[in-house]
Design a protein around this nucleic acid. Structure first.
Lengths: 141, 141
DNA sequence: TCTTGAACCTCTAGTTGCTAGAGATCCTAT
DNA sequence: ATAGGATCTCTAGCAACTAGAGGTTCAAGA
């Protein structure tokens, strides 16, 4: 059995984050030692690694909750898991496109700036009026 | 003079967000009508448009605070503004690269999945053990 | 002029995914 | 036996808003 600190070292998930995952029900309540400290077995470690990896791939905790409950039902069709992963892929592609348009806009601003004073700085000017944008970009990135 | 609703419509910034910006000092305190309702002039509208556009480009409110204070000093060198914009550009490029590696990973997961049951779903499997990743991906995206 | 209803006001609390700190307790190594 | 690191619970804070309650003001139609 691992203490929370060892589990943290083993999975790369910080100690308060592990407690947080337990609090929101993503991890089951841990066993406790005689002195009330959390103890983890192999199952918990695997589950946490799953969460960690999914987070690395950008899944939301809600998505992960669903993926975890799917992984607990091995006989089910994996279509639902594919839906979640595909949704995530679409959202990542979308964010990449948005970010690329922002990148272009920023590069344009910076190449036009002649390093003079604020009054003729193209960066500040470009921020002041959206009209001079080549692209429209709205919503979060 | 514009009411907060008209200003919102003119700039595309939601009404509660405008009040929020005032609360955190990004916008100056608005004038008030006899009945205590906010009134905005052209200056406020321009300032809000600046904020809106900067947010669209992914700048943090702290960055925007700095950019705004620069734009109030037209005689200064614009080097500071360039530093902020360059930092933002670097961070955007970095996020794009991270997202592209996630995209590849997800695509790999999905193409390997044969649409069977969860027990042999490559998506779930890939999430379970990080070792089968082609790329290492850590940190936020 | 009155009235209705949309727009406005303030305030609190919620969102996501954690992180930081206080103050107390436990565990382990010397 | 004791020192100090690890753990416990609890509260509060971060970004950047969003939602809702409960109350006031404004503008347009009858």
């Amino acid at each position: 059995m691992l203490s929370i600190g060892k589990l943290s070292a083993a999975t790369g998930v910080k100690v308060p984050t592990i407690r947080y995952y337990e609090e929101i029900g993503l991890l089951p309540e841990a066993e406790r030692s005689a002195g009330n400290q959390r103890l983890y077995g192999v199952m918990a470690q695997e589950r946490l690694a799953f969460i960690r990896h999914s987070r690395d791939l950008g899944f939301s905790l809600d998505d992960i909750r669903e993926l975890l409950s799917l992984s607990d039902r091995p006989d089910m069709s994996c279509a639902a898991a594919d839906v979640i992963a595909t949704r995530q892929l679409v959202s990542i592609k979308d964010r990449i496109m948005r970010l690329q348009s922002l990148q272009q806009e920023l590069e344009r601003m910076l190449t036009q700036c002649a390093q003079g004073t604020i009054s003729d700085c193209k960066v500040i000017e470009a921020l002041s009026n959206h009209e001079c944008c080549l692209h429209t970009h709205h919503g979060e990135v």
